[in-house]
Design a protein around this nucleic acid. Structure first.
Lengths: 151, 151
DNA sequence: TGATCCTCGTTCGTATACGAACGATATTCC
DNA sequence: GGAATATCGTTCGTATACGAACGAGGATCA
């Protein structure tokens, strides 16, 4: 590590109680990055984690309005729109107006999307398995339980 | 939940073993989102978590080359460049060529950046505290320890 | 009925995040 | 010395992520 002598060097004994590498946020960001990397390796780079979240949610529970779908997959209205648009372009998803509510846009899997999602399900399970591989079995449940409390 | 009867509805009994809401990746993304939200509330929206990571790292250990700084703060070369550029524009950081290596660009805190970072340190500690607030004391160390194994 | 308020979807702007490719510079090895 | 290789910083393109603002539609209530 180079520590050139300049006015920019830490001039006072720094607050030793703060170490970036020990902050949850920083560590969580790194863990998330590793997870995404594993996801891309296993699922293939043609599908992102958020896109997969949308497919999986629609596969599990059928169609819903776009904004509700966003809430179910942890995306705000602006983000879910972009994700749905890209899935629409690939015809994995289709939309139609809600007859009950003129503001709503119903999003659902296309038949091709259903097939595609079903084929990917085993790989998605592998992603979770590989992500948790460094932990002992009992630790995995612990981690998930703790993370759930931080939502 | 509306489940309109169409060809897109889940046509087969879905693989019940896969529930999106139970996958680590998905839960971790939500926990990270909450953390960022807390960060923005406490630190103010004029500084992002990654920008703070750079400031904190430079404050702790002094200047380093841009790419090394990126590795220390968990950003690739393309990402760290953007972050450094924005910090440069705000004059919180300054750069100079490395006399030892013509490829390297040394990044360090400006005097204003040192002051700014020092003032924010207490708030940064609060961010971690609030993020972990839902957990019992002994659970906090457990979570951090487990997350560290997933880097 | 009409005014108010809320939700829905959309758009814009900014900031990560990262793969890929590029030229410039260092290092390694023959 | 010189060629192969590696690293550095840069740029481009694409995809989240989200605050903010907007118009259209729906719900509430006087």
């Amino acid at each position: 590590m180079v520590r050139p002598s300049t006015a920019a060097e830490t001039p006072e004994p720094a607050d030793e109680s703060y170490d970036l590498a020990e902050q949850v946020g920083f560590i969580m960001r790194q863990a998330a990055q590793r997870h995404v990397s594993i996801f891309n390796e296993i699922m293939g780079s043609d599908l992102t984690p958020t896109q997969w979240a949308v497919l999986a949610r629609l596969y599990q529970d059928g169609g819903s309005s776009q904004n509700l779908l966003g809430r179910q997959t942890a995306m705000d209205a602006a983000t879910i729109k972009g994700v749905v648009d890209r899935l629409l372009k690939r015809k994995l998803v289709q939309t139609k107006p809600d007859p009950q509510d003129g503001r709503r846009l119903i999003v659902e899997l296309s038949p091709a999307g259903v097939d595609y999602t079903r084929e990917l399900l085993p790989k998605a399970e592998t992603v979770t398995k590989v992500t948790l591989a460094p932990l002992a079995t009992n630790q995995r449940a612990t981690l998930v339980a703790l993370l759930k409390q931080l939502r």
